[in-house]
Amino acid sequence: MVDFIVGKYNYWIYIVLMMIGFYAMIGKKNLIKKIIGMNIFQTAIILFYVSIGCKKGATLPILGHAHGHAGQAIQTSAYINPLPHVLMLTAIVVMVATLGVALAIGIMIYLKYNTLEEDEILKAVK
């Protein structure tokens, strides 16, 4: 039981984080809060991915003896899984790009309606 909780609790934390972001995205009326929620959601996903790559007792995925120790066998278990990190480097960029576009649209909206509250904008549109 304890093992179970210890093995999973960090995932749970990320899921809770995700859901906080998710709630902000769909529940909040303020556009900036929505964008912040979006950021929280995506960051939590990134944390989640990165934690997949973790291995107990392993170190950063950089060969410490890259030069001069050719021939020495490399232990897989000695380095954490590099793939999730790579994926998340890409995902971070995607996230930033989305954030940028979202903010740009937010600016457009603000310039037009002078407000960032969804209901006020919808009223103005109609």
Binding site: T98, A102, I105, M108, E118, V125
Partner: peptide, 9 residues
């Protein structure tokens, strides 16, 4: 823009 913003979300 507002329609697009909702699409973004």
């Amino acid at each position: 823009p507002m329609a697009s913003f909702r699409y973004v979300i």
